[in-house]
């Protein structure tokens, strides 16, 4: 960790008027600063800003500084969001990490985290170590020759499935964007992970009202039962009426460079009977276009299985 200057602005306006790296829960930023991956000269502690509140009266509205556990345990929050949050990280991390920070968390790619190795995301143009290296945990969808790093968030997968929006504030005003469109695939510029502009701060997360999202679930498949990132995950919400699927939301995690909405799977589900056979048929296209790496040839199969399992469990929810 390099020496840095720490300030704690007391208003959103003050925070936006200063230049620096925002610190919320610190569970990504401080971690990466210890590894010298991030070396900000100035850190702005935003924890005292009034970006709080959970409002479930019309859709779900979360202040960006709400902690993961507080949202997860709120009774009005859709199960797919609670479940994704509660299967994330550990109790201690969930008590610290904010929802806004969660959406901004960096990849867990081991080469991004080791300054002694090439990484295009950390050091543009230096090369990608993962493509020929240890890539079992890496992405099979949305990848490029420059980067195959997986997006690490669980709750972002659930939020993308539910068409969530985020509010971004800067010294020149605020704007609202869909979370799905906010994230970028790496392409030739893996260092650019999203549409955040310099000086912008996430102030709020909004999930549009979707009553049938009460029937939703998040399945996370991983190498141990807790405190581990997804090898593959699926967020599912199903609107089933009289045994028929009226509408569906499906997104996958652990397999892609950003939270991966599976619109084609949703299309394949709509209008069909809510049976395991339908789920299997719809899931059979979930991994279309996947490019497995040397150590994760199993992921397309696992993705399809995970989607089937999530659809089955979602149909029971």
């Amino acid at each position: 960790m390099r020496p840095f200057e720490l300030t704690a602005p007391d208003s959103v306006e003050a925070a936006l008027s200063e230049q620096g790296t925002f610190l919320a829960g610190g569970t990504t930023l401080v971690d990466l600063m210890k590894l010298n991956v991030l070396t900000p000269q100035r850190v702005l502690d935003i924890n005292e800003l009034p970006l709080r509140g959970i409002d479930t009266s019309d859709g779900l509205r979360f202040g960006a500084l709400e902690r993961m556990n507080d949202i997860a345990h709120h009774p009005g929050v859709y199960p797919v969001i609670s479940s994704a949050l509660l299967q994330s990280a550990s109790q201690q991390l969930r008590n610290m990490a904010s929802i806004g920070g969660n959406l901004m968390q960096r990849t867990r790619c081991g080469y991004f985290r080791d300054v002694n190795t090439p990484c295009n995301k950390r050091k543009p143009g230096s090369g990608c170590s993962a493509i020929t290296g240890d890539n079992r945990m890496h992405a099979i969808l949305g990848t490029s020759d420059a980067c195959v790093a997986t997006h690490a968030s669980d709750v972002a997968v659930a939020l993308v499935a539910l068409d969530a929006q985020i509010t971004l504030a800067s010294s020149t005003g605020t704007r609202t964007v869909k979370l799905d469109g906010f994230y970028r695939v790496p392409g030739e510029t893996p260092e650019v992970e999203n549409d955040l502009r310099p000086g912008e701060l996430i102030t709020e997360v909004f999930v549009p009202k979707l009553d049938w999202a009460r029937h939703s679930t998040y399945v996370k498949v991983r190498d141990r039962q807790s405190y581990e990132f997804a090898l593959c995950s699926a967020a599912v919400a199903l609107d089933i009426q009289d045994g028929r699927i009226v509408d569906a939301r499906v997104a996958a995690g652990g397999v892609a460079t950003k939270p991966w909405r599976l619109a084609a799977v949703e299309d394949a589900l709509r209008g069909e009977p809510a049976t395991v056979r339908t789920f299997e048929q719809a899931a059979s296209i979930a991994a279309d276009g996947a490019k497995p790496l040397s150590a994760n040839a199993f992921k397309p199969s696992l993705l399809k299985r995970t989607v089937v399992r999530a659809l089955i469990e979602g149909s029971r929810a």
């Binding site: 081991g110 290296g133 240890d134 190498d223 141990r224 039962q225 581990e228």
Partner: peptide, 27 residues
Amino acid sequence: HEGIEIEPSGRFANADLAGYLVPVNAD
């Protein structure tokens, strides 16, 4: 769970407790 991933270069790919898994209570 446990296994060091040794790269062709000799670097350990998972030389920390985030990458070198051991069971947690839930396991």
